[in-house]
Amino acid sequence: MKASPIRIALIATTLAFATVGTANATGCLKGAVVGGVAGHYAGHHAVVGAVGGCVVGRHLAKQRAQERAEQQAQQQTAQRQQTQPH
């Protein structure tokens, strides 16, 4: 019996959540959807695209979070310098 692409995508998503966890799922779902659609149209490789999209989406989300944290640290430093007496 040939596995349907939907069944394979559901299994891959379940495995991704089981290994990644909900705390690290940021960016994974959006990336998996985009990658799955792109993989489907690029030769019926939706599962490979979904897994790759999840990895890339997670990486980009981590980068954005790190940039936000750096910006907040810079803003806090600037505020402290403005409030300190010279």
Rank of each mutant, 00 (worst) to 15 (best):
M1F: 13
K2Y: 07
A3R: 15
A3D: 12
S4K: 07
S4Q: 09
S4T: 14
S4A: 11
P5E: 10
P5A: 06
I8K: 15
A9Q: 04
I11C: 07
I11G: 12
I11V: 15
A12W: 05
A12T: 03
T13D: 03
T13F: 10
T13G: 13
T14G: 15
L15Y: 10
L15K: 08
L15T: 10
L15P: 05
A16I: 09
A16R: 03
F17S: 05
A18V: 10
T19P: 03
T19Q: 07
V20Q: 04
G21R: 06
G21W: 07
T22H: 07
T22P: 00
T22L: 08
A23S: 10
N24I: 03
N24Y: 14
A25T: 02
T26Q: 08
T26P: 00
G27W: 02
G27T: 04
G27F: 01
C28K: 00
C28G: 00
C28W: 01
K30M: 08
K30D: 00
G31P: 00
G31Q: 05
G31K: 01
A32Y: 07
A32P: 07
A32L: 04
V33N: 03
V33L: 15
V33G: 03
V33K: 05
V34K: 10
V34H: 09
G35N: 04
G36L: 02
A38F: 05
G39P: 06
H40G: 13
H40Q: 14
H40Y: 14
Y41V: 10
Y41S: 07
Y41D: 06
A42R: 03
A42K: 00
G43N: 02
G43S: 03
G43F: 05
H45G: 11
H45F: 12
A46E: 13
A46G: 05
V47T: 14
V47A: 15
V47F: 08
V47H: 09
V48K: 06
G49K: 01
G49S: 04
V51G: 08
V51Q: 10
G52I: 12
G53N: 04
V55F: 15
V56F: 14
V56S: 07
R58P: 00
H59T: 11
H59I: 10
H59E: 08
L60W: 05
A61G: 01
K62N: 10
K62R: 12
Q63V: 11
R64V: 13
R64M: 14
A65H: 08
A65T: 12
Q66S: 15
Q66P: 03
Q66T: 15
Q66R: 15
Q66Y: 13
R68S: 12
R68V: 07
R68H: 09
A69E: 13
A69H: 08
E70G: 02
Q71W: 05
Q71C: 04
Q72E: 13
Q74L: 05
Q75N: 08
Q75F: 01
Q76A: 14
Q76D: 13
T77K: 14
A78N: 06
Q79F: 00
Q79G: 04
Q81V: 03
Q81Y: 08
Q82G: 01
Q82D: 02
Q84E: 04
Q84W: 02
P85S: 01
